Simulated scan of single mutants.
Amino acid sequence: MTGQDLDGRVALVTGGAQGLGEGMAHALAAAGAKVVVADVQTDAGAKVAEAVGGVFVEIDVTDDASWEAGIASAVQQAGGLDVVVNNAGVEITSLLVDLEPEQARTMLDVNVLGTALGIKHAFRAMRPDGAAGRGGVVVNVASVAATIAFPAISVYSATKSAVDRLTRVAAMESGKLGYGVRVNCVYPGLVPNEMGANLAGDVARIGLFASPDEAVAAVVDLTPSGRLASTEDIARAVVFLASDQAAFVNGAGLPVDGGMGM
C-alpha cells in the first residue's frame, strides 16, 4: 500500500465521458477508487463507467437541481463519496473585439458556476452531517490559461482564474466550518486532445498563427519541458491531490504545465 492508494474511496469526476475526465476516471480507478462518471453525455459516460468498473450519473454542472439529484444518486449507487473532481469545462476561442456575449456566458456558466455548484454539493455530501459524512477531497481543474496571457482565450482564462479563487476560498470555508474537506486545483498545460486541437485550429483560423502546427509549436516553445502535457500527466496529479500523500496540501494550485506558466 502507498499513500496514493485510494482503495475503499468513491471519486466522482464531472466531464468524465471524454478527454481529461475520461483519463482521470481511469487513473482514479487504477488507484483503487470506485469511480462515478458524471456527464450530460449519457451513452459515452456510461461506457467509460463500465470500462473503469464504476457507475454513471447524469449531471448538468450548470444546474443546481441536477447536482443535487446526481450526488444523491452517486452516494446511493457507490456507497459514499470521498472525492469530487470538478473537471467539466468548455473553451470557446475569440478575440476580445469579436466577443459574443452568449459564448462568454456559456464559459462562465460551465467553468465558474459549474465548479462552484460542484464545491457546494461536495461539501453538503461530505461534511459531518452529509449523506456521505466522512470528509474528503475536492479537486478543481483550472488551466495554465489562468497564469499566462495567450491571445484569443481571454474569457476562458478569466474563468480559470476564477476557479483558482473559488478553490482557495472553499478551502478556507471548509476548514473554518469543520467540513473536513480539502480543496485544491490543478493547472493543466495544453493537451493534444480534442479541445487542444480545436484551440490550435481556432487561433490559426483567426490569423494569429500560420497553421495549427505553428500554434502548437509556439506553446511548446513557451514550455521549459519542451512538450505538450499528456492526459496521464494531469490524471496523475489529480490522483496525488486526492490521496493521503497530499494530506496537508490544501487551498493550493498545482501547475502541471511543464513550466509554461512560471
Rank of each mutant, 00 (worst) to 15 (best):
D64I: 02
V48M: 04
V144I: 13
A11L: 04
V84P: 05
A38H: 05
A158Q: 06
F56C: 09
G15W: 11
F209Y: 15
T106K: 15
A242F: 07
Q103K: 15
S154V: 13
R9G: 00
G70V: 04
G253H: 04
V90R: 13
G45A: 08
T167Q: 10
L6G: 06
V75S: 08
G130D: 04
P101R: 13
V40I: 15
Q77S: 10
A215I: 10
Y187K: 13
R205P: 00
A65T: 09
Q76V: 00
A158N: 02
G251H: 12
V57I: 02
Q18G: 00
R205L: 05
A116C: 03
L117Y: 07
R168S: 08
P212Y: 12
G8Q: 07
G21M: 06
A218R: 09
L81G: 00
R127N: 02
V144C: 06
L228P: 11
G70F: 09
G130H: 01
V191L: 14
A252Y: 07
E232L: 13
V186P: 11
H121I: 07
L99V: 07
A218I: 03
A49L: 12
V191W: 02
A25M: 10
D63E: 14
N184A: 08
Y179P: 02
A33M: 11
L6A: 04
Q245P: 00
G226P: 11
L81W: 00
V181N: 03
A132M: 03
G207R: 06
A170H: 06
A38V: 05
A38Q: 08
I148T: 12
E91S: 10
G114C: 02
S211L: 03
G189W: 12
V110Q: 04
A210V: 10
V239K: 05
Q4E: 13
T93N: 06
G70A: 06
V138R: 02
G89H: 05
G54R: 12
L12G: 01
D164R: 15
L113P: 01
T147G: 02
G8V: 01
D129V: 01
L113V: 15
G89M: 07
V37D: 05
V163T: 11
G258F: 03
G79F: 00
D7Y: 02
A197R: 15
A247Q: 08
R205V: 00
A33P: 07
G201L: 10
G45N: 09
A17F: 07
V61M: 05
M126G: 01
V13T: 02
V48A: 07
A132E: 00
E50K: 15
V219W: 13
G21R: 06
A237R: 09
A145E: 12
A51H: 01
V75P: 03
L108V: 15
A146I: 11
Y179L: 12
P192L: 12
F209W: 12
R105H: 14
D233G: 08
N250M: 03
